[in-house]
Write a protein that binds this DNA or RNA. Structure first.
Lengths: 344, 344
DNA sequence: CGTTAGCACTCGACTCAGATGAGTGCTAAC
DNA sequence: GTTAGCACTCATCTGAGTCGAGTGCTAACG
């Protein structure tokens, strides 16, 4: 589709623009050395690239900037063997040297490191509780009307939920249920918990319990959120303010607002959950008005070969794709290794 | 210290400036009606107020803006019977109509409501785990080397921590300790837990346990953070960007950065913990460079007459003190009532 | 025929001078 | 003590002029 020379020129323009955030002119490309042509020749090619939709011109007599299509081409044809700087790699490795023994801590800390190294905003999705399994269940009554349910998952996460207990349900009855769950449903994945509960234990419970209906509704209540609730960790949101394209408050306000909306974030991050490798969504590919000038790069970490969560970096469309992709690749692999060490 | 007329003029200037964010001139004060003097007279008084340090002038031929001292005077002499608008009050009340039954949910939701109503940033400090007492303790082994400790407090909060288990410590031994804690230390405030543990149970444990030292170090590990860890909830950070004085990215960057630093926030919020009533800290009174142009208004909510946590609003020094103070007053009282209903 | 030098042209960014007007301080009169 | 009047200040706005980076086009070159 593009000639080799066009490819090189497009590449040079994107590179330059990523560094400078200013429209790139034919002269500066020519001077770089890696494209050995005169400005005039490059101008001709640039005009062609603009016709093809890879470049844009803010106004006549300005240089060119990459269009979304241009970024997309750039990313799709990126040199795959690019390696992050050794200093960055070592910072990242140092993180894994630290002894952290709770999943949540690990993820949270990873988010911080990632935003610090990259100078962009990091968004991490915690382990998908959905796919972990039940390790221990407990119901503790707080007073006459409320109780707290505690679920410990196979990854050592502790989820708790306070629920209302209808009058008439006794402590001893609840204990029966808890014992039943702990003896029969250990190691069942959480997303199967509800159906297994009904299918296998329904009859037995009905026999043992006088307030079957009420107790079932309590359990429903407990498991309703737990299995969709993927915790999202955000770090370095204010790094957005460092970007020259967002030096105008109005432009960055919508972005930061959206970052405060955890449900939306979760949904956005989960969109590529399961896809292998490193995903890049450029500008409008994010399907959010506010992120029209942002790119999101994501990777997945896993446990036992099953995707657990997602790590991502949000930056301007003019972001250092190669560097960030390399770093995310390293971190996702290391997270996978670290988590499996923790829970094997 | 100030004459009645000076007080009125200062009041009028602060009011006007809070609304308009623009330096206030003598003419506009005169036209308001509540100060029945000509611009010339008001000008004279304004000059005096500036000499006294209550007002500042951005430049000759501009109006006056309140100095920190001016705001301080304004706040200290605020009409104490100011009432928030009925519509705002009803929004706030509606919040308490919702049935929420976990402390954490309540606080988090309150933070959201508060930032929405006020259009400022809300910072809430969750119940001080420190002062709640132990309701239930549990240690669950995850694999050979790690275990998860679960602490349920009297307010129904569930705190968990994953800890490393040194080799040689057996499950049965840990169970002994757990049983001991649950039978002897229930209802002991968390901050006394460690000392009680050593004083009362040290001997007994030493008798029962072969690995006394190791187990004690695990317990130390578990209780070390729990008692200082006050969770902070932030909402509406981006509301800062709405303020005209922060329309410059550089000015707001430091503020948002500081808001991301939870430990600093916690410390700042806890600074007035325990003080009765509504506290206002204006500009540099916050002891943070970045908040030099911000004011923080806080109130405390409690349980059983003991301060549990703090709710606060952060805004520009030019913030609607009366309105916010009224709203915080209402919310803190209602929170106190709601929490005591939940846990009595 | 692809490449390049040359040149006229475009247009945002910057600068500077003048006009505008909100607001002040001072003085003198009420 | 209060106020009208007035000269003065100074940030903001406006428009003209300049600058320069960058373009597109044409003609010449190898």
């Amino acid at each position: 589709m593009l000639t080799e020379r066009q490819r090189m020129i497009l590449n040079a323009i994107v590179d330059d623009y990523i560094r400078s955030a200013e429209p790139v002119g034919s002269r500066s490309i020519s001077k770089r050395g890696d494209v050995g042509f005169s400005p005039a020749t490059i101008r001709n090619e640039m005009a062609d690239l603009e016709d093809l939709g890879f470049l844009e011109q803010p106004h006549t007599s300005a240089g060119r900037i990459p269009s979304h299509k241009g970024y997309r081409y750039y990313v799709d044809h990126l040199d795959p063997i690019y390696e992050a700087l050794p200093t960055e790699q070592s910072t990242l490795r140092a993180f894994f040297a630290e002894k952290l023994n709770a999943t949540e801590q690990v993820i949270q800390h990873a988010a911080m490191i990632l935003s610090h190294i990259t100078n962009y905003t990091s968004i991490l999705l915690g382990p998908e509780v959905f796919h972990t399994s039940l390790r221990h269940f407990q119901l503790l009554s707080l007073n006459e009307t409320t109780a707290v349910a505690i679920i410990v998952t196979s990854t050592g996460q502790v989820e708790s939920k306070t629920v209302a207990v209808p009058p008439g349900v006794s402590v001893s009855e609840m204990e029966k249920v808890v014992n039943l769950l702990n003896s029969k449903l250990i190691n069942v994945p959480l997303y199967k918990l509800k159906s297994r509960l009904y299918r296998e234990l329904g009859q037995e419970m009905q026999r043992h319990l006088t307030n079957f209906e009420e107790i079932m509704s309590i359990l429903d209540n407990i498991f309703v959120d737990t299995d969709t609730d993927q915790r999202v960790y955000l770090s370095g949101a204010t790094n957005m303010l460092n970007q020259p394209e967002f030096k105008d408050v109005d432009k960055v306000k919508d972005i930061l607002d959206l970052l405060e909306e955890t449900p939306t974030l979760t949904k956005m991050m989960a969109a590529t959950q399961g896809a292998a490798g490193i995903q890049v969504r450029i500008g409008t590919e994010n399907n959010h008005e506010a992120f029209a000038n942002c790119s999101l790069i994501t990777a997945t970490y896993s446990l036992d070969g099953e995707a657990l969560g997602t790590i991502g970096i949000l930056g301007p469309t003019r972001m250092e794709y190669a560097r960030v992709m390399s770093l995310l690749g390293i971190l996702s692999k290391d997270l996978t290794i670290m988590l499996s060490k923790l829970y094997k």
